[in-house]
Design a binder for these strands. Sequence first.
DNA 1: ATTTTTGTTAACCATTTGGTTAAACTATAT
DNA 2: ATATAGTTTAACCAAATGGTTAACAAAAAT
Lengths: 204, 204
Amino acid sequence: MVKIKDKGAEEKILAAARKVFMSKGMAGARMQDIADEARINKALLHYYFRDKDKLFELVFLGEAQKFFPKINAIFNSDAQLFEKIENFVTEYIDEMQENPYLPWFVMNEINRDPDQFMYKIWGKDNLPKPGKFLEQIETDIKKGTIKRVNPVHLLLNLLSMTIFPFVAKPMVIRNLRMNDTQFKLIMEQRKKEIPKFIIDAIRK
Amino acid sequence: MVKIKDKGAEEKILAAARKVFMSKGMAGARMQDIADEARINKALLHYYFRDKDKLFELVFLGEAQKFFPKINAIFNSDAQLFEKIENFVTEYIDEMQENPYLPWFVMNEINRDPDQFMYKIWGKDNLPKPGKFLEQIETDIKKGTIKRVNPVHLLLNLLSMTIFPFVAKPMVIRNLRMNDTQFKLIMEQRKKEIPKFIIDAIRK
DNA sequence: ATTTTTGTTAACCATTTGGTTAAACTATAT
DNA sequence: ATATAGTTTAACCAAATGGTTAACAAAAAT
């Protein structure tokens, strides 16, 4: 009988690790959990990935490094302010629908060791530069397109309204008596609701 | 020589536990860390609080149970919509300035075990009832005071803009190149900025 | 003053957990 | 067929960690 090598063990492990790390965090995740989830022996983890730290870093950076630059690109694009806001919200929510634990995961790790984290996510070249977006807001104020608002607060509001519901998902679902489908729907709506809300708030 | 019983050991332990749990989460916190922080022997932890779970629960529920009902009270008060929004933002930000790790802590634990958590925070009597606030929004829409907005999104926006910056504090500080004092100042400003932003967005 | 209760500690124990090893199995090249 | 390199596992190990114990000290009760 030919053994079905259903998927490279390496990939199976990475997928399992991703799942376990995401839902329990680095400290809470057990190597055995990951092995079980991947249905392989614990020793294989160490065969493919030297130790827990290495495995974690791989999973984590893999997730974050492919996502953050995308966001960065949007903020630094040449689009108009309103369009940029819409792009950000849409892109972010789409990504989160597929990877709903990422924001919590990021918050978790950023909290564990902020410096380490930031350094690893954004290599020197990929540092987040909110500067352009903030300046753009100021420019629009001068042009008279939008009200006099503090750019920092506007940015915080945008990020908050987009990201927070995912971070707080279990709480939101519970307190607003939703199920997963309804949550997904609500977030889908927010792609239009958030930009509308912001524009209503700042347009002259 | 009289030994200075500088503070009841019990309190010292609770304060230490609070600090350690808050910054490392339940899984990451070590009993020894807590003992060190409180400058007592590890065995004393077990003398006063049977085990880690009990200690954690006490700290955690202590923090959360005294805070959440306050928020609930605001949402269910008889104040006008705009005033209620302002009250919530102010109260929440004030509380967080003193206890900045609480929101992350709550998110963390809510994620670990949503059902258990929710059950413990809000005893049967203290369940959060967003209902009244949501109805109030609908009433105001009918009265014509505010635009037609989806009450759920409005509530989410309010919560997001208020809570998120604290959850993401390390990230915000880092990316906007702030220090703690500046962060505090920004949050102080938000007490007025958020209500203003919301009102601008929804007032007819 | 003496006994009892309460508070505190160092040393210890059991379990969990990350990590290793040596042997076995599989596939491929020779 | 046999050797070889890569893959997988069971069994094991050492360190970390939550928790216990027994002895001791301080305070309170008698």
